[in-house]
Design a protein around this nucleic acid. Sequence first.
DNA 1: AGGCTGTGTAAGAAGTTGCTTACACAGCCT
DNA 2: AGGCTGTGTAAGCAACTTCTTACACAGCCT
Lengths: 107, 107
Amino acid sequence: MDDALRAVADPTRRAIMELVRDGERSAGDIATRFPAMSRPAVSQHLRVLADAGLVDVRRDGNRRLYALRPEGLDDAAGFIERMWSAQLRRLKGVVEADREADASPRR
Amino acid sequence: MDDALRAVADPTRRAIMELVRDGERSAGDIATRFPAMSRPAVSQHLRVLADAGLVDVRRDGNRRLYALRPEGLDDAAGFIERMWSAQLRRLKGVVEADREADASPRR
DNA sequence: AGGCTGTGTAAGAAGTTGCTTACACAGCCT
DNA sequence: AGGCTGTGTAAGCAACTTCTTACACAGCCT
């Protein structure tokens, strides 16, 4: 989880993920979408994403094709869900207390 | 989103979030759970979390009580969901193509 | 008032990240 | 074979993080 969350913390990397979200893209193609940044910088981001398991890489002759690998986000999603779960439990408790309050004191 | 994701990228901060997940805790109480780290370090993490909107702070006399604020994770959750959505669309396409393949060529 | 308790802030050191330029090198094409 | 194309890696630098210690200061208690 740690690697994935650290990887996703960077806005450029998130942008790359959005780019390869709906299909493979070559490294060069991706790099051209970041005209403000050098190509090696993008390449390094791609490596971080691959190491974190957030993208898949495939060699195709000369090129390397990257594609999103959303399962890499599972642990992160689990964390977020865990954070919500307690809140929901509490909310549920409030609702039930409220229901009781509605039901009983009416005498 | 950026602040929240950056904040969550740190394992100590995630641990703090888990700590305050099911109820308020004072800064000092939280700090004692990290014996390997100085109290100011924890205080700084708490500030990052508060700035990112991931925890609520409330003063109670001397102390400050922190509680989880899971809505702070909404944008992050949205991002993860967005990453999955394309994959699911694709999967859906596959399933439908498969169903057609099952239905038609049978003559 | 004066001292303790609880907590944040300041300053600075050490490590990490994110970039850049320069280089390496595999694969395609003629 | 030789050159172009596509891409990763190395080295180094500036900026940012994450600690630590030292300090500040409000609120409680006697």
